[in-house]
Design a protein around this nucleic acid. Structure first.
Lengths: 165, 165
DNA sequence: GTGATATACTTGACATATCAACTATTCATC
DNA sequence: GATGAATAGTTGATATGTCAAGTATATCAC
């Protein structure tokens, strides 16, 4: 048997082995994601942002001056709809973003990153990048590719054409 | 290039490739965990339980008649401390668990699954098992082992002796 | 055009995750 | 033993994730 890091089974003090391999896979995935997420949340502590707020700001920075409609932001996030409104409420209250009702389609609200938001992100870029590197430091480049491929498969079983040119 | 399922990059409508492989790995992990978790939450809809509540009940069933102290339950869960009290409050209100202050150490509160909890779990066993199998159906047994190994590495970089006898 | 339907949010309600602060016990030590 | 420190759990406050229901606007069918 190869040496390996603490298994989830041991980590959660489970004495019996997992009932099924599917169970072990699913539990390990959930726990690992939670652990990694917590590490990033810890990085955010130096700012007044939460991790989801950071992610939204980052998406808006990527969108540039055009901004994005509220629900387009949601589609780029992990979560579903209604929470996004309130999350943006808070970013707007902190003057990190602006909101404007779209002139041509008045149902839409365009959200844009504000200068304070850009400045705040800039301070977080380096520590976040460092945390990302640290998180995957135990994996070789090939292992990372494998991990991403297996996760893609888990999320979404049906094969599609390769995305690369 | 091999065919592959939708990548997270495409799923979230990102036009540029990821800045770093660490970034892609971390984002893919978070998104995959969220998607899979939502599938399980959907299974729970037939009961009045949330997924965390289900997990706690399952842990208590595993603990048997002895039950477990509150914080021992927390250690087997993904989350940190204070939420567990309120979660168990709700399970107790639904008569799915019982709570008793420990006689020898009066700081501890022993939680045990109640008959209604056992009965409810029994109804959920089959659909949850089916969901677990479905979730990993796209992965071979070897791929599942690889995925679990890579996730273990991510969570916890330092090598330790194998857990197997 | 006008009514039916769809879209883009928004709001209310509730469960959860987290932090900080607090209570009740127990343990350690002099 | 009495005091100080540690442990087990609880409570309050805030952010988030989710559902259900509601509002405003746009689009479609006729």
């Amino acid at each position: 048997m190869p040496h390996r890091p603490l298994s989830v089974a041991r980590e959660i003090h489970q004495t019996r082995p997992f009932q099924s391999s599917g169970h072990e896979t699913v539990v390990t995935l959930a726990r690992t994601a939670a652990v990694i997420e917590r590490r990033f949340a810890a990085v955010m502590e130096q700012s007044a942002l939460t991790l989801p707020q950071y992610n939204v700001l980052r998406i808006l920075r990527g969108a540039g001056a055009e901004g994005l409609p509220t629900l387009a932001i949601r589609d780029r996030l992990v979560d579903l709809s209604p929470g996004i409104t309130r999350l943006i409420d808070r970013l707007e209250a902190a003057t990190l973003v602006t909101r404007d009702r779209d002139a041509t389609d008045r149902r839409q609200v365009t959200v844009r990153i504000a200068p304070a938001g850009t400045a705040l992100l800039k301070k977080l870029d380096a520590p976040i990048d460092a945390a990302e590197r640290a998180a995957v430091a135990q994996l070789s480049a090939a292992e990372q590719r494998t991990l991403v491929r297996l996760l893609d498969l888990l999320r979404n079983g049906s094969a599609v054409p390769a995305t690369d040119p």
